[in-house]
Nucleic acid binder design. Structure first.
Length: 585
RNA sequence: GGUCCCAUAGCUCAGUAGGAUAGAGCGCAGGAUUCCUAAUCCUGAGGCCGUUGGUUCGAAUCCAACUGGGAUCACCA
């Protein structure tokens, strides 16, 4: 149940009954009409701009029209008060009975409250993380992982049929580098002194056990083979080992994918699927052989004019045509991406979302061009760029050098500050904004991390139920008819809390449509804040406390309110992928 | 140079598909626990929403230009 959708219908129905609107019904449309919570709660519960939007086409002034509409709205039994304010806003105050019914609905719907059907069951593919399988995940992968995961959760909740996907870049030069790095560790495991790791290979210690495993399995045999023979073996083993590590890292962050898609499968059987994808594009007239103009700006020293097979992406919105086949006949990374996109499209997704880091900004137009060409404009592709995360410790930037292997891993961050803290911090910012992440702030003072604030609110809710069990030992607190007991909720502070709960379904829809999971995090903070404030009112006014051992009926009604708050907090926390604890320790 | 992201309180950021007197946290000043966890709450000070134009009943929000900051530019992956 969505209060604002409900009243949008009621208001439109009311408008249809007004004479001057009926007369010119063909000339006015209700498209720009909004029904939303007023910015300032003191104005009312629901506000509409109807009069301001409709005044002009009707040839009247907004205030006068607002008065007419306001009068008509008073006929609704759930409307307790209507006022006209400012340039022509119509503010509606709802009856206590309406709020009570709404609370009853929240309790009845439970975990389903806030679910939406705007997704219409459309198939959506959210691809995120997709870190190269050449080492453990580092902290830079963190944000995309969390944002992608939360977005997928959110869209699922909003009625999409969501697949969480990971693209394994396991085909390309970096995998050969990985294999050679592992081979070195293999020789080391056999007792050879390998000295310093040569430049260009991965120096990280995490490859030591992989080399050891190879030595255990093959003994010295690999060493006697030519490169062409041992390379494929070591590549396979190395990638598998890296993916095991990466999955563990993701698990530590509570991130789970449904599909791990291997780039290598596109290259298999003589790159059959890449060839098919390029043939498909060629058939549609998007491919030609030619040369590219030299890069603008600084010219690379080794730049040469060479003929390649190109994708005419400029015709579908890109700045420059893109190479599919290199001059030596091999396929570019981009060619595999075309095949990968085609695969997704053929799997029947209506919406494809790529969550990428800001360093991939230059890739967006290219992907968009692929989507248009491959799907003839039918696929809806969105690229969500997450800006960079800067790490700080006590206000000092944390230096990282990937080359020396001296980088902060995702695991280190999660182990130090905790999964929930990391996740919530990553979501407590619009993803298009850069983010500063300070270890000290997140761990030392818990109040600097909003996740504790929200979780604390949930724990307090649970605490109320523990109190109730103590106060009414004879009552079976867990099987009360909470939704049927809402009639005693009448205090304005309590009704305000219900109003906050009423915003949830609308928020879920807006956040899902805008693909902005951070809005859920901010809403949770807001709801927690309302709850904490109400809690403290009980300190000053004992008659507002949730549990009152002298008034059993009222206590049960209020347990219903607390239950509803807890339920929405839990629902939102689940979208962000963080826990809703029963108590804080 | 091209493209993309950004500019809101001293600091870090929200601002709900253009709405009313622009909000929160931190920090600062003051206050609240005989009582459900003070990991909480309340009050106050603090603003030319980067600049200039445009669009309209109405702009922090949309458009253009400019200024300033960040990312990126490849036959890499």
């Amino acid at each position: 149940m969505n209060l604002f959708a409900d009243f949008e219908n009621r208001i439109k129905n009311t408008l249809e009954t007004i004479d001057i609107i009926k007369e010119k019904r063909g000339e006015v449309d209700f498209g720009r009409l909004t029904v939303e919570p007023p910015r300032d709660a003191s104005h009312g519960d629901v506000a509409t701009n109807a009069a301001m939007v409709l005044a002009k086409p009707l040839g009247t002034n907004p205030r006068a029209l607002a008065d007419i509409i306001a009068e008509a709205l008073k006929a609704d039994a759930d409307v307790s008060e209507v006022s006209v304010a400012g340039p022509g806003f119509i503010n509606i105050r709802l009856s206590t009975a309406y709020w009570q019914r709404l609370l009853s609905t929240v309790i009845a719907e439970g975990v389903n409250y806030g679910k939406s059907a705007i997704g219409g069951g459309r198939k959506a593919n959210v691809e995120y993380v997709s870190a190269n399988p050449t080492g453990p995940m580092h902290v830079g992968h963190c944000r995309g992982a969390v944002v992608g995961d939360a977005l997928a959760n959110l869209m699922q909740f909003a009625g999409y049929d969501v697949t969480k996907e990971y693209y394994i870049n396991d085909a390309g030069g970096q995998i050969e580098v990985l294999a050679r790095s592992v081979f070195l560790r293999y020789r080391e495991a056999l007792g050879e002194d390998i000295g310093d790791i040569p430049a260009g290979l991965y120096p990280g210690d995490y490859l030591v056990p992989v080399g050891k495993a190879l030595a255990d399995e093959y003994g010295p045999r690999l060493h006697t083979m030519p490169d062409e023979e041992w390379l494929p073996i070591v590549k396979d083993k190395a990638v598998d080992a890296m993916m095991v590590m990466i999955r563990e890292d993701l698990e530590a962050l509570n991130v789970h994918h449904d599909v791990f898609f291997s780039e290598r499968t596109l290259h298999a059987n003589g790159a059959q699927r890449i060839r098919q994808a390029i043939n498909d594009l060629t058939f549609k007239g998007h491919v030609y052989k030619g040369t590219l103009p030299p890069p603008k700006g600084q010219l690379p020293e080794d730049w040469e004019d060479r003929e390649q097979t190109l994708f005419r992406s400029t015709e579908v919105g890109d700045d420059i045509d893109r190479p599919l086949i290199k001059s030596d006949g091999s396929y570019t990374y981009f060619a595999a991406d075309v095949a990968y996109f085609k695969d997704k499209f053929d799997r029947g997704y209506d919406e494809m979302i790529y969550v990428l880091g800001a360093d991939h900004g230059g890739y967006v137009k290219r992907l968009d061009a692929v989507a248009r060409a491959v799907s003839d404009g039918k696929a809806k592709l969105t690229v969500l760029l997450c800006q960079l995360v800067k790490l700080f410790r006590d206000g000092e930037p944390v230096k990282m050098s990937k080359r020396s292997g001296d980088f902060v891993t995702l695991r280190e961050v999660v182990d130090e500050v905790g999964r929930d803290s990391v996740r919530f911090m990553m979501l407590y910012r619009k993803s298009s904004e850069p983010l500063d992440f300070d270890f000290a702030k997140v761990t030392e003072q818990s109040k600097d991390n909003p996740v504790f604030y929200v979780q604390y609110a949930h724990a307090r809710c649970m605490s109320v139920f523990r109190q109730a069990r103590d106060a009414f030992p004879d009552m079976d607190v867990d099987s009360l008819d909470l939704k049927g007991s809402v009639g005693d909720i009448t205090d304005p502070n309590e009704l305000q809390l219900i109003a906050k709960l009423a915003e949830y379904p609308r928020l879920v829809e807006a956040a899902a449509q805008a693909q902005e999971p951070h809005r859920v995090a901010f809403y949770l903070y807001d709801l927690a804040s309302s709850f904490h404030a109400h809690w403290n009112k009980g300190k000053e006014s004992p008659d507002l406390r949730f549990v009152n051992d002298k008034n059993r009926q009222l206590s049960v009604a209020r347990l219903g309110l607390v239950h509803a708050v807890a339920s929405v907090l839990k629902s939102g926390l689940a979208i962000t992928g963080t826990a809703a604890p029963d108590e804080m320790r």
